[in-house]
Amino acid sequence: MIEFLNMGGYGAYVWSAYGIGFVVLLANVRSARAYYRKQLARAIARRQDSNT
C-alpha cells in the first residue's frame, strides 16, 4: 500500500495531478447541477406567483 502511494518516488507528482483533475471536474459537475437547480427553482417560484 505504502509502495503504491509512493509511486516509485513520484507519488507527490502523480497524486497532485490526479487530485487537481478530480477537484476541478467535481467542481464542474457541481456547478452544472447547481445552475440547473437554481433555474428550476426560479421557474417553480414563477409558476406559484402566477397562480396566486
Binding site: 464542474n28 447541477r33 433555474q39 414563477r46
Partner: peptide, 22 residues
C-alpha cells in the same frame, strides 16, 4: 453530461414563461 445539464438550465432560464415548461 455536464454540457447537457447546463444547457437544460439555460433553456429553463430563457423559456421560463413558455407554456410547455409551465
Amino acid at each position: 453530461y455536464m454540457a447537457l445539464q447546463r444547457t437544460q438550465g439555460a433553456i429553463i432560464e430563457q423559456e421560463i414563461d413558455s407554456t410547455w415548461l409551465q
